[in-house]
Amino acid sequence: TQVHVDGVTYTFSNPEEAKKFADEMAKRKGGTWEIKDGHIHVE
Rank of each mutant, 00 (worst) to 15 (best):
E17I: 08
T1Q: 06
H4I: 09
E16A: 09
D23N: 10
P15A: 11
E34I: 14
T11A: 08
K27W: 12
T9E: 06
I40A: 02
A18W: 01
G38D: 05
P15K: 09
D23L: 08
H39M: 13
V8W: 11
Y10S: 02
K27M: 12
I35L: 12
H4Q: 05
G31C: 09
V42A: 02
T1D: 03
T32Y: 15
D6F: 07
M25C: 14
M25P: 00
A26N: 03
K36Y: 09
H41G: 03
D37I: 02
V42H: 03
D6Q: 06
I35Q: 07
V8K: 12
T32K: 12
A18S: 02
G31T: 08
G30H: 06
A26L: 06
K19L: 14
R28L: 15
V42K: 02
G7R: 06
T1F: 11
G7Y: 05
F12C: 09
E24K: 09
H4F: 11
I40L: 06
H4Y: 12
I40C: 04
V3M: 01
V5W: 04
E17S: 10
H41R: 07
F12K: 00
W33M: 06
T32V: 09
K29Q: 11
M25I: 13
E17V: 09
I40V: 04
T11G: 06
G30W: 02
D37T: 02
S13V: 10
F12P: 00
T32H: 13
I40N: 01
E34Q: 12
K19C: 14
G38K: 03
K20S: 11
W33D: 03
R28Q: 15
Y10P: 00
E34S: 09
G7F: 06
F21A: 03
E16P: 04
F12Y: 04
I35T: 06
T1E: 03
T32P: 03
K27Q: 13
D23Q: 12
S13L: 11
E43Q: 14
A22G: 03
Q2S: 10
T32N: 09
E17L: 10
K19W: 12
W33Y: 06
Q2A: 08
Q2K: 13
K29L: 15
F12V: 00
G38W: 02
N14A: 08
E17H: 09
T1G: 03
D37N: 09
F21G: 00
W33L: 09
G38R: 02
V5T: 04
D37P: 01
E17Y: 07
K29I: 15
A18D: 00
E24H: 08
A22R: 01
H41T: 10
A22M: 02
V5I: 09
V5N: 04
N14C: 14
H39F: 07
Q2Y: 14
K20F: 09
D6I: 03
I35C: 15
I35G: 04
D37E: 08
K29T: 15
E24A: 10
A22I: 01
S13P: 10
G38S: 04
A18R: 00
T1K: 04
P15H: 13
